[in-house]
């Protein structure tokens, strides 16, 4: 017996909302840019989980292909984001995002 018959979709929606909210909370709460990138990953995963839950409940494989593409984009994003962080660290010797206010008008 799989989860599709037993567990209501609302539970998955609630779980995804909580995980997404945790990601937002982390972005607001932390100052370390690496942790902020990790919280963005958590938000992406909350959305992925919701897509998979809807896909399973509607027997639609297209949503799972979408999740696959989201994972690909997330991997590329992390690679470039961490490279940018390395450059920032090399220049300012810190990963604190509050240092990065040079673009302020």
């Amino acid at each position: 017996m799989s989860a599709i018959q037993i567990i209501p979709l609302t539970w998955y929606v609630t779980l995804s909302a909580i995980l997404f909210g945790l990601g937002v909370l982390g972005v607001l709460f932390r100052r370390n840019a690496i942790i902020i990138l990790m919280c963005i990953e958590l938000m992406l995963n909350a959305v992925n989980l919701l897509l998979v839950a809807f896909s399973a409940h509607h027997s639609d494989p297209n949503a799972q292909v979408f999740v696959f593409f989201i994972m690909a984009v997330a991997a590329a994003e992390v690679a470039v984001g961490l490279a940018i962080l390395m450059v920032i660290y090399r220049n300012s010797k810190s990963t604190d995002i509050d240092i990065l206010n040079k673009l302020k008008g």
Binding site: A17, G21, L22, L25
Partner: peptide, 13 residues
């Protein structure tokens, strides 16, 4: 931050 994040989470749920 905790207040804003918590309010957003509660609102979403």
């Amino acid at each position: 931050a905790v207040t804003a994040g918590g309010i957003m989470m509660v609102t979403l749920v």
